[in-house]
Every structure is written in structure tokens, then in C-alpha cells.
Amino acid sequence: MMASFLIAFVVGGLFCVIGQLLFDVAKLSPGHTLCILVVSGAVLDGFGLYEPLIDFAGAGATIPITSFGNSLTHGALQEAEKHGLVGVITGMFEVTSSGISAAILFGFIASLLFRSKSRP
């Protein structure tokens, strides 16, 4: 139980260290960094490596943005397994929907509730 929290902490932290290295050493903008991480998540799932990582680290692997690329690919692959090539397009958002729909929904709610502090 405690071990799983520790593993989540370390794995999640390491993802962020990679991000920080891309920020500081490769001098990339946050947008580029996030895109690289998402793409690498998608590629890792293509090799079937990301699911074991989720089994291992739990939230440490599902919370970083890499899991977004993973779940997009995973949905596409799952559907492709069932329906062939067409499934690659139709299945993509099957798994990911929760993250994006939550972000859209809460973003809109936030715009109703909160006022911007930086501008009058």
C-alpha cells in the first residue's frame, strides 16, 4: 500500500524531471515539451510498454500527460483489433474522452465562476 504511493511518487517525479530537462537543457517551450511527451506516450504504447508501466506505477503513469498519448493509441488499437483499419480512426477517443471532456467542462464552468485577476 505504502509502496504503491512511493512508486507513484517516484515515477511521476521522473516524468516531470524529463520535462524539466527538455525545458532547461533543450530550451524548448512548454508547448513543445508537452507535445514531445504526448507523442512519446503514444509511441511507447505502440510497443506495448506503457500498459505495464501503468500496472507498475498506477497514478504515477496515468497522471503525467504521456498517458494521454497512450490512451489515444490504446483506444485506436483496441478498436482496430475488432474492426480492422477503420477502427484506428473511430476508436481513438473511446478511452481518452474523460480527460478532454473534463478539461472542457471544468474550463467552461471555471469561466462562469471565476473572474480573471490579471485584467480588470
Binding site: 509502496a3 504503491s4 512508486i7 505495464p52 500496472d55 507498475f56
Partner: peptide, 9 residues
């Protein structure tokens, strides 16, 4: 075992 969870599946 936590460290064997990689190969859980």
C-alpha cells in the same frame, strides 16, 4: 509484489 507489477498482465 510491488516491483513485479510490471509483469502483472
Amino acid at each position: 509484489r510491488p516491483l513485479s507489477r510490471f509483469s502483472k498482465a
